[in-house]
Design a protein around this nucleic acid. Sequence first.
DNA 1: TATGAATGAGGCTTCATTCAT
DNA 2: GATGAATGAAGCCTCATTCAT
Lengths: 188, 188, 188, 188
Amino acid sequence: MPVQKITKEEIITIAAGVFRQKGYHNTSMSDLAEACGLTKGLFYHYFSSKEELMKAVLQGVHFHFKKSLFAPAFGNALSPQEKLEKFLGKAKRLFATVDGGCLMANTALETLGTNVEFTPFIRAFFEDWISAMAHIYEHTYQPEVARKVAEEIVQEFEGAVLFMRIYGETRFIDEMLKRAQLRFVQPH
Amino acid sequence: MPVQKITKEEIITIAAGVFRQKGYHNTSMSDLAEACGLTKGLFYHYFSSKEELMKAVLQGVHFHFKKSLFAPAFGNALSPQEKLEKFLGKAKRLFATVDGGCLMANTALETLGTNVEFTPFIRAFFEDWISAMAHIYEHTYQPEVARKVAEEIVQEFEGAVLFMRIYGETRFIDEMLKRAQLRFVQPH
Amino acid sequence: MPVQKITKEEIITIAAGVFRQKGYHNTSMSDLAEACGLTKGLFYHYFSSKEELMKAVLQGVHFHFKKSLFAPAFGNALSPQEKLEKFLGKAKRLFATVDGGCLMANTALETLGTNVEFTPFIRAFFEDWISAMAHIYEHTYQPEVARKVAEEIVQEFEGAVLFMRIYGETRFIDEMLKRAQLRFVQPH
Amino acid sequence: MPVQKITKEEIITIAAGVFRQKGYHNTSMSDLAEACGLTKGLFYHYFSSKEELMKAVLQGVHFHFKKSLFAPAFGNALSPQEKLEKFLGKAKRLFATVDGGCLMANTALETLGTNVEFTPFIRAFFEDWISAMAHIYEHTYQPEVARKVAEEIVQEFEGAVLFMRIYGETRFIDEMLKRAQLRFVQPH
DNA sequence: TATGAATGAGGCTTCATTCAT
DNA sequence: GATGAATGAAGCCTCATTCAT
C-alpha cells in the first residue's frame, strides 16, 4: 500500500487554518497547496474546486466542533453545571485565537451575500451550537426560554470574538463567559 | 467649474454599499467602476488605489454614523430615555439590512488578519459607538459600568446582525434592541 | 501682457533633466507635468505629444551644447591649446553628472531600435560634436586624420561616461580628458 | 518527464534579444510572451516578475560571454597574440549587431538611475570583461598598466558600438579593433 | 498518484491623450 | 490660457483550473 503523503482530513485541517486567517476570497489555491506541501496539480486530485474544498472545510470544522464541543453537552456523565463549565472552557480554547477567530463567522460575513452555496453549512453549524447550549440551559430554563438564551449567548460569543480581534484582547471572551455562567445560576 | 459625473462622496457611498454586500477582496475595481458608472481608469482620478478607496469608505461610513447616530447621543435636546429609543431605532434602520449587514464588522472579520492598514479605522468606529452608548447608559449606571454595558451591547448588536444575516430574519435585531432597552430601566 | 508661468524653454530644460535620469520610456507625461509644476492638461498646450516634446528636448539640448560648447571651438579668440582646454573643461562640467550622464547617448541606446523619429536629432548632435573637435585637432593633424581623431575621442568620451555611471566614479572622465589632451600635443 | 514548449534558457535567449532591441521599459511582458510563443500567464511559471526575468537575462548574457569570450582569454592553448585576435574577432561577432548593440550597455544607460537592482549584474559583467582583456594585455604591459589599458579599450569598444548604432556603420567597430591590436604590439 | 506546464480570464494600476468648461 | 475630468488601451501580475505525461 503506498504511503499517503497527506490525508484529505489533514488538508481540511490545514485549509481551515488558512481560510480562518486570510478569508475565503483572499486565499488562493496556491496558498492552500503550499500550506499543505502539495503541488497545485495534486491538490485538484483531492478537491475538485476551491468551492468544494471550502464546503469540506466547513463540514470538517462542524464535525470537529460537534465531536469535541456540542455532543458532550448532551451526555450524562457530568452535572449540568460541570457540563457548562467544560463547554465554555473548551469553547474559549477553540475560539479565543486572536489570529483568525471563528472561521464560521468569518465565512458567514464574507460569503453570505455572494456565495449562497456555503449558507447551509454555516446554518447547520450554528443550529447545532445553539441546540447544545439550549440543552445545557434547559436545566435552568423552560425549553423555549433556554433556546432563546442559547441564541443570545452564541450571539454574544461571536460579538466577543469580534471585539477580541478588533482590540487584540482576550478579556472580551473571558467577560462574556462569566456572563454566560451567571445566566445559568441566576436567570434574568 | 468642471462638471463632474459624480462626486467623491457619491463614489464613497456607492462603494460602501458594494463592499458591504460583496466584501473587500471579492469586490473588484471593475465592480466599483461599473456601480458608479465610471470607467476603470477614471477611478484612479479619485482614489489612488483600492486600499485608499477602502480607507475613504471606512472613514465615510464612520463619519456618517457619527453625524446621524453617535453625536446625537451626546446632545441635550432629549431625555435619556428618548435618546436611547431614537438611537436604537436609527441603529436598526442603519444596520438591519439583510443584504450586507454592517460594513465595519464585515471588514473587520475579513481584513483584520491580513490588511492591518484598515484596523485603525475599524477601531475608531467602534470606539465612538461604544462611547455614545456609554454616555446614554450613564443615566442608569456609574460611568465605568456604563462603559462595560455599552461594550456588551455593541457586541450583542453585532452578534444579532450576524444571526440576522445567517437566518435572514430581522427578529434577532428586534429582540436584541428590546434587551438593550430593558438594561436601561432595569439593570442586571 | 499676461505673465507666463513657465516658458517652453524652461519646460524643455526641466524635461531634459527628467529624461536624462529616467529615460524616455520610463518617463511619463505625468512625471514631466509634475516636474514642471503644470497640470497634465496644460502640458498639452505646450507640446502636442510626448514624442514632439522629446524632439524639442533633443533640439534644445543640441542647441545648448552648440552655443556653449561647439560654436566656441570655431572662434578665434583663443589659441588652439586654450580652446581645447576650455572645451574639455566645459564638456566635463556638462557630462560628468553621475545622475544621468549624457541624454543623447542614453536616448540613442534606448530608442535607436524602436523610435526612428529621434535618430536625425541624435546624429545631428554627434555630427556637430565631432566637427567641433575635429576643428580643434586640425591644429595638430591633417583634416582627415583630425576627423578620425575627433570621432575616436567622442567615442572614448561616451565610453568614459558609461563607466562613470556604472562605477559611480568620475575618474574615468578625468583620465579620458587627459588622454584627449595628450593626443593634441603628442600624436600617435 | 514533462514536455516543455520551451526551456528557461531558451526564454532567456529570446528575451535577451528583445530587450536588446527594444530596451527594458519599452518591452512588455506581452512582447516577450509573444516572442517566445507563450501565453502571458505562463511566463510567470518561469519567472516571477519582469525584474526577475531581466536579472536572469543579464546573468545569462554574462554567462554566455564568460564562457565564449572571457574564459578563453585565460587559457594557455594559444599565444597571447592569437588570443587577442580570437578575442577581438569573437567580440566583433557578438556585439557588432546593428540591431541592438550591447545589451549590457543599453541596460546600463537605461536603468542605472532608476533600477538599482540591475547594477550588480552590469558591474559584474564589465568587471569580467576588463579582467579578461587585462590578462591578455599583461603580455605587453605591467599588470597595473594592463588593467588601465583594458578599461580604456572596453570604453572605446562601447563608444564604437554606440557610433555603429547611431550611424548604422560597422566600420567604427573595425577601426576600434585595429586600435586595440595596435596597442598590443606598440604601446603608447 | 504525482508533476508542473499550460490556459485564459480577470485583478489592480498606469498611461498618453482628449475634452468640456 | 488653464483645469482636471474623462477615455480606452495597455501594463504587470494572479488566479482557478486543466492537461499531458
